[in-house]
Structure formats: C-alpha cells, structure tokens
C-alpha cells in the first residue's frame, strides 16, 4: 500500500511532525499518516508505540496514539477527522521501520476522511524543513 519510493517532498506535514498523504479512491478521500524522519531522529531510541484499532473514529487535532522512547512519550495527532480503515501493525512490532523507511513501510494509519479542513493548517515539505531547522 505504501511504496518504498515515496517522495517526502510530495507529502504534507503537521507542526507536530506527522506527515499525511492524501489519495482519492472512487470519490472517497483517504489519508495515510506517519511521522517524519526528523521526528524519529529527535525522539531517539524508540521503544514502544500504541496505535488504535481499525474502526476507531478520530477527530482532527486529537491524539490517535503514542510513541515512546526510554524517557519520553509523544502523542500522535491526526490532522484530519474520519474512520481508521487500516493500521500498520508492523511498526509497533519493529520500530526500526520508522528509522529506515519513515515515509514508506513505516506508515502508521490510514483514515477514511470525513472532514479534511485540518489539511489547510499543514505545511509543505520546504516549510516543514524550515520549521525543523528553526527548532533544531
């Protein structure tokens, strides 16, 4: 579903470091969500991730899961509202996927979008990199 050659420049980014890839299938919009390479690097030494079950409804800007390093917990926020239709269970079982392929095999959830207004707040790749540079 998420090819390895995803180009990070084609994704949208939240200030909270989630990325989003929008696709349309039969008129229905779907959002695939993951976390950026920058975030994975900043978190260091990830040890645990909790993702929701398929079928869960999520609201935009609310928490859908958590990722933990040894001494920190970071909530994961959804930029859009909708129903979770797929969860990448491979990631909690092999957190190294996030380091190796954050934009490909390291995707986290796929949402059947009911409200995409949150997308307006997202950054493009250049703006996101700028934000990261300022933070770092």
């Amino acid at each position: 579903m998420a090819p390895n050659d995803v180009n990070p420049e084609e994704l949208l980014y939240a200030e909270t470091h989630e990325w989003v890839r929008m696709v349309e299938e039969d008129g229905q919009k779907f959002a695939t969500i993951g976390i950026s390479a920058f975030a994975v690097e900043q978190l260091t030494d990830l040890v645990f991730m909790e993702l929701p079950a398929v079928g869960t409804q999520v609201e935009a800007q609310t928490e859908f899961g958590e990722v933990e390093s040894v001494k920190a917990v970071s909530p994961l926020y959804s930029p859009v509202s909708g129903e979770i239709v797929a969860v990448n269970e491979n990631v909690p079982n092999d957190l190294d996927l996030l380091g190796h392929e954050p934009y490909g095999a390291g995707w986290l959830i796929k949402i059947k979008v009911s409200d995409e207004s949150g997308l307006a707040k997202l950054l493009d790749y250049a703006a996101y990199l700028k934000q990261c540079a300022e933070a770092g």
């Binding site: 645990f48 040894v70 001494k71 920190a72 917990v73």
Partner: peptide
Amino acid sequence: LQTREQHIRRDK
C-alpha cells in the same frame, strides 16, 4: 517502562 510514571507523563 518508566514512561508510565508520573515524572514523565505527569497528569497522564
């Protein structure tokens, strides 16, 4: 598993 604890997660 210290992330369960108050000194990290505080009110959660």
